[in-house]
Nucleic acid binder design. Structure first.
Lengths: 238, 238
DNA sequence: TGATTCAATTTTGCATACAATCGCGGGCCG
DNA sequence: CGGCCCGCGATTGTATGCAAAATTGAATCA
C-alpha cells in the first residue's frame, strides 16, 4: 500500500550490504526501538498490537516477535493477557542504571588505555573540540550527540564486545535522561572539563585514572539528570 | 468442569503469583533457557523449530517468540532465513564477560555495604560455611551452587535492580565456564580465602575494599576458567 | 447515588496455512 | 572430470482464523 519500500529488483545481487530481504520482525524491532527512543511512543503508552500493525504495515506475527525482543531489552513491559506498555523508569531505576553505566564506562576506559593508538585519541580529540564548539554556540542537540559519540567511542576502544552490547542496551533505556542531564547549561562547562581530563588520561594511557574520571563523570551526569527530571516530574525543588 | 480457582472474586489477597494461566511463549522461553544452561542443548547446536515444537508440545508461533527472547538475552544466535543456533562463546567472549561481571559485582559489593544489616551478613556467613563444608567433602556441584548463591546474594543486597538483571543475564551466558573455574581443586582454597576476605570487608562495611576483593576474585575465576576451558577445547598447555 | 452483574466488544494467545528462502543433489555442458 | 544450472525437499518467515481472556458499558438492584 503506502509503503512500497520493497527492495524488489530481482537481479540486484548485492546491494551496499547484501540483504536478500530483511525479516519483518527485525525491521519492526528496529522501528519500534526508534519510536521509543525518539519519544514517538512515550513511557507508559499502551501498545495495541493491531493498531500498531496497521501503522507499520505488517501482520501481528512479526510484530509480536519484535515486542518479545524489545521486552527482553527492557524497553517494553509485557503483562500476560493484558498487553504491552512502553517501559517507564522510576527515579530509582534511572539512578541504578546510571551507576551501572558508570562502572561499565570506567572498565571501558581502563581497557581502552591498554589498546588505543595515537590516531584513536586524535579522533576523539576532534570529536571533543567539535562538541566544545557546539557548546559555545549553544547547539544543544548537536552537543548531546557528540557527547554520546565520544562515550560510545571509548567503549568501542575497549575492544570488549560484551561491554559494548551491555552499554548500548542500558544506554538506550535512559537515553532521554542523559539528554536531560545536559539541559542545565552550567553543567556543560563541567562536563567539558571532565572530558578534557579524560583526554589527558588517555594520552598518558593511565587506565586507573581514566576509569575514575569516567565514573565520577557519570555520577555527575546522574545527579544532573535527576534534578532535571525531578522538575520535569513536577517536583518543587529545582 | 475443572473450574479450579477462576480468579474473579476478591477472595482475600491472591497468592504471591496469581496466574490464571502462564503464556506458552514464557513457558517455552524458560524451558529453552534451562535446556541451554543445563547443557541439554550445547553451544553451536542447531535449533530446528518444528522438531523442538514436537518435543515441547506446542506450535511454532509461541516457540518463535521464545527464541526472540533468548536471542535478545544472548543465549541464541539468529541468522535470517538460516535458523537459530545455541550461542557459542569464544575464549575472548568469555574473558570479556568475566571482566564485565567483575565490575558489576564490585559495584554490587560497594552498594551493598551501604545497606546490609547484620543478619544479612550472618546469612551469607552461613552460606559460606556450608560451602566450606562441601569443599572439605569434595562435593563439587554443591560447592558450586552455594558459591553462586553467595555471589547472587551480594548482588541482591546492593538493592540495584538494573544491576541484578544485568548480572543474571551475563551470568547465564557463562554459567558453564564459571563451573569450569572450580574444576581445579587448588582453586577452591584460594576462592574460600577470598570469600572470607569478602565477609571481613562486609563486616567492616568497607565498600571500596569489598569492591576490590570482588573484582580480583572474579579475575582469578576468569583465569581459572580460561585454563580449564583451554584444556577442554584441546589446547596443549594448561 | 452507588455498587454489581453480565453481555458485547476489544484484545491477546495460539495454531494452522501458505509463501519465500535455503541447501542439496542430479543432470547438463564444456 | 569439473563447474554451473535447476528443481525438490526441508526450513524459515508471514498472514490469517479462532478461542480465551480482559475491558467496557449499560442495565439492575440495594
Amino acid at each position: 500500500m503506502a509503503d512500497d519500500n520493497w527492495q524488489g529488483l530481482e537481479l540486484a545481487e548485492d546491494a551496499p550490504q547484501r540483504r536478500p530481504r530483511r525479516p519483518l520482525h527485525e525491521e519492526a524491532a528496529d522501528r519500534l526501538r526508534d519510536m521509543i527512543l525518539e519519544g514517538e511512543l512515550a513511557p507508559g503508552d499502551r501498545i495495541v498490537e493491531q493498531s500498531l500493525c496497521d501503522r507499520l504495515g505488517l501482520s501481528r506475527t512479526p510484530l509480536r516477535e519484535a515486542i518479545k525482543t524489545l521486552t527482553a531489552e527492557g524497553l517494553i513491559i509485557l503483562q500476560p493477557n493484558r498487553g504491552a506498555t512502553v517501559a517507564s523508569l522510576s527515579l530509582e531505576d534511572i539512578e541504578d542504571t546510571f551507576r551501572v553505566i558508570g562502572v561499565l564506562e570506567a572498565l571501558a576506559g581502563e581497557q581502552a588505555c591498554g589498546r588505543v593508538q595515537d590516531d584513536d585519541i586524535a579522533e576523539i580529540r576532534v570529536l571533543h573540540y567539535q562538541m566544545a564548539l557546539h557548546r559555545t554556540r549553544g547547539e544543544r542537540l548537536d552537543y548531546f550527540k557528540l557527547n554520546q559519540r565520544i562515550h560510545e567511542r571509548i567503549v568501542e576502544l575497549s575492544g570488549n564486545k560484551v561491554l559494548m552490547e551491555t552499554h548500548q542496551r542500558l544506554g538506550g533505556c535512559i537515553r532521554r535522561y542523559r539528554f536531560a542531564a545536559n539541559l542545565a547549561t552550567e553543567r556543560w562547562d563541567q562536563a567539558i572539563r571532565e572530558h578534557e581530563e579524560m583526554l589527558d588520561a588517555l594520552d598518558a594511557r593511565d587506565g586507573k585514572r581514566l576509569a575514575e574520571i569516567l565514573r565520577r563523570h557519570l555520577d555527575n551526569k546522574r545527579t544532573a539528570a535527576e534534578s532535571a527530571t525531578a522538575t520535569e516530574r513536577g517536583e518543587p525543588g529545582g
